[in-house]
Design a protein around this nucleic acid. Structure first.
Length: 465
RNA sequence: GGCGCCUUCGUCUAGCGGCCUAGGACGGUAGGUUCUCAACCUACAAAUCACGGGUUCGAAUCCCGUAGGCGCCA
C-alpha cells in the first residue's frame, strides 16, 4: 500500500507554494498507486507557532483540490495527526533508544555547551557536541528530576548510505554527523526524532519531500536502524527557486499558496504549472488535467535541478484555462471570486452577458473588474480629455437615438457610417466614443458593450459629458 | 568553512552514443487580422549543450577534473 504524506509546520501565514508543490507530487503518487495521501501537522516548534495556520493550511489544500485522506481534522487509523498530541509516544520511544544503547542522556549545561562551541570555533573546528555524556551511566530515575536531553549516539567511522529514488546512492560519513538531540529538556522531540517515528507509525511508504532534507536523512537512517524499522523509499524533490536562483522566498516572490487564489488564479492552473517544474509530459504537452497527470506521471521521471518559478508563464497558463472554461462556469467562477475575495456581489445576468466579451482577454479572474467595471458603474474619470469633443458626442448620441434595433452590428454600422460622414478616421472615432462610454482606453469590444449597456444608458453617458 | 546535490536558449524543458547544422513551451521581435486591448495566424532571433581533459569510428548523452549555483550544518 502506497502511503505518502506532507508534514507542514504551522509557522507561517498559510501553506507555502513549495509545500503545495510537494503536496501535489505526494497526492498524485498516492492516487496513481491507489494509496493514501496524509497530512501531518508538525507543530513541535512552540515558539514559531502561528495561530490559525493549521486551519489555513488544510483549507488551502482543499481549495486546490488536494484533499488528504487522513489529517488532524478528519483523523484516520494512525492518529493523532498533530505532533503536539503525540508527545508520549516520542518520549517512550526515546527512552527506549537509551535503554537499547543507541541514545544517551546528556546533562551538559548551556554554559558548558556554549564554551565548547566557542572553543571549537576558535580552533576552527566544526562546532559539535563532544560526546561528554556518552558514557554517563543511565540513571533515568535520578535524571528525571534534572534537566536533561536525549542524544543520538552516532556511530563513528561509518558510511551511511541514503538510497534516493532520483539520485541513487548518496553516501555520508558518520563522522560528520553531530550527536543530534532527539528529545529536548522540555519533553518535546526534535524534528528528526518525531519525523522518523511518525512516518513509521503512520506506515508511510514513500517519503517525498524537498531536497533541503537530504542532508538530514542519514540521521533518520540511523534512527530507523536503531529502532529496527524498515526504511521507506526516499525521494528528494527539487527546490523551487526565485528568479535569482535562491530558494523560493517571500522576499522575492509571493509564496503563500492562497495568495494565488486571491489573485484569481484557478487552482488547477497553478497545479498544472507546478507539475511542469522538474517534469515534462511524455508528449511535451503543457496543458493537461489532473486525471491525465495521475495517469502519465512517474516519480522516476522527475528532474533534480531546482527550477525557477516563473510568474509570467503561470499567468499565461491561467489565461489558457480561462479561455477553455465554459461560459456558464466562468460566470460562476467570476461571481464566486468577487464575492469571496472582494466582498462584491455582482449581478449574475450582467456578468453572464459580459463573459463572452472578456473570456479571451483576462488572464486572472481579478482582471475582470479592470475590463468590466464600466458595466456596473458610470465612469468617474476619463482617460482622454473629452472637453472639446462635446459637439461630436452630441452628433453621436443623436445618431444612436435613431437606432430602433439595438444590436451590436447595427450600432457598429451606424457608427462607421457617421464617422465616414464626419470624415473622421474609424480608429480615432471609436476611441473617443470608447472613452466617453467606458472612461477607459482599453475595453472589451465597444459595439457589443454598448448593446449590453442599452441604448438609454449609452445616450445618458454621452449627454452627461 | 565542512558535507551533499546540481549544471541544455532569459525561463520551464525534450534529449538517455549516431535520427541534433539540439526540438517544444513561456517570454521577446517583426508582420497579418482588427474600433482599443486581447485572442488567433505567420515568420524571426535566442543554448559553441558551464569549462577542460579523456573513452569511442562517433558524445549534449559515458568517465575524470575544474569552475559556478543551490541546499543542509555551523
Amino acid at each position: 500500500m502506497v502511503r505518502t504524506r506532507i508534514a507542514p509546520s504551522p509557522t507561517g501565514e498559510d501553506l507555502h507554494i513549495g509545500n503545495l508543490y510537494t503536496a501535489l507530487i505526494n497526492f498524485v503518487w498516492a492516487k496513481k498507486n491507489k494509496g493514501k495521501f496524509i497530512v501531518r501537522i508538525e507543530d513541535t516548534d512552540r515558539q514559531r507557532l502561528v495561530k490559525g495556520a493549521e486551519e489555513r493550511i488544510l483549507q488551502t489544500l482543499k481549495d486546490f483540490g488536494l484533499s488528504p485522506d487522513e489529517d488532524p481534522q478528519k483523523g484516520g487509523p494512525y492518529g493523532p495527526y498533530r505532533q503536539s498530541e503525540r508527545l508520549e509516544i516520542y518520549q517512550k520511544l526515546a527512552h527506549q533508544l537509551v535503554e537499547k544503547g543507541y541514545a544517551y542522556y546528556c546533562t551538559c549545561s548551556k554554559e558548558r555547551l556554549d564554551d565548547l562551541r566557542k572553543k571549537q570555533i576558535a580552533e576552527k573546528k566544526i562546532p559539535r557536541y563532544d560526546g561528554h555524556c556518552r558514557n554517563l551511566k543511565s540513571q533515568s530515575s535520578k535524571l528525571k528530576t534534572k534537566n536533561y536531553v536525549i542524544r543520538l549516539k552516532v556511530p563513528r567511522d561509518r558510511k551511511i548510505v541514503v538510497e534516493d529514488l532520483l539520485r541513487g546512492r548518496v553516501v555520508f560519513d558518520s563522522n560528520n554527523l553531530d550527536d543530534q538531540i532527539l528529545l529536548k529538556s522540555d519533553g518535546y522531540p526534535t524534528y528528526h526524532l518525531a519525523v522518523v517515528i511518525d512516518d513509521c507509525l503512520m506506515k508511510i511508504s514513500h517519503i517525498i519531500r524537498a531536497e533541503e532534507w537530504l542532508s538530514s536523512t542519514p540521521k533518520h537512517i540511523l534512527l530507523y536502524e536503531a529502532f529496527g524499522w524498515e526504511k521507506p523509499v526516499f525521494c528528494h524533490l527539487p527546490i523551487l527557486r526565485n528568479p535569482d536562483r535562491s530558494k523560493l522566498s517571500k522576499r522575492k516572490n509571493p509564496v503563500w499558496a492562497s495568495w494565488y487564489l486571491k489573485q484569481g488564479y484557478l487552482p488547477w492552473a497553478v497545479l498544472n504549472y507546478l507539475a511542469l517544474m522538474g517534469w515534462s509530459h511524455p508528449q511535451e504537452k503543457e496543458i493537461f488535467s489532473l486525471e491525465e497527470f495521475i495517469e502519465v506521471f512517474d516519480l522516476k521521471d522527475l528532474q533534480v535541478v531546482g527550477p525557477a518559478f516563473d510568474p509570467v508563464k503561470l499567468e499565461w497558463m491561467n489565461g489558457e484555462y480561462i479561455r477553455k472554461t465554459q461560459n456558464s462556469k466562468l460566470k460562476t467562477q467570476i461571481l464566486d471570486f468577487y464575492k469571496k475575495y472582494q466582498q462584491k456581489n455582482l449581478p449574475e445576468n450582467l456578468v453572464e452577458k459580459t463573459v463572452p466579451l472578456i473570456q479571451e482577454r483576462i488572464k486572472k479572474l481579478s482582471d475582470y473588474w479592470d475590463y468590466c467595471q464600466f458595466f456596473f458603474e458610470r465612469p468617474k474619470e476619463y482617460q482622454i480629455d473629452l472637453s472639446n469633443k462635446k459637439e461630436l458626442l452630441k452628433k453621436i448620441y443623436q445618431e444612436l437615438e435613431t437606432i430602433s434595433d439595438w444590436k451590436a452590428q447595427t450600432i457598429g454600422e451606424k457608427m462607421v457610417y457617421l464617422a465616414k460622414k464626419l470624415n473622421i478616421k474609424a480608429g480615432e472615432f471609436f476611441m473617443i466614443l470608447r472613452v466617453a462610454i467606458t472612461g477607459k482606453k482599453i475595453t472589451p469590444p465597444l459595439n457589443e458593450s454598448m448593446e449590453i449597456l442599452g441604448k438609454e444608458e449609452c445616450v445618458k453617458r454621452l449627454k452627461f459629458i
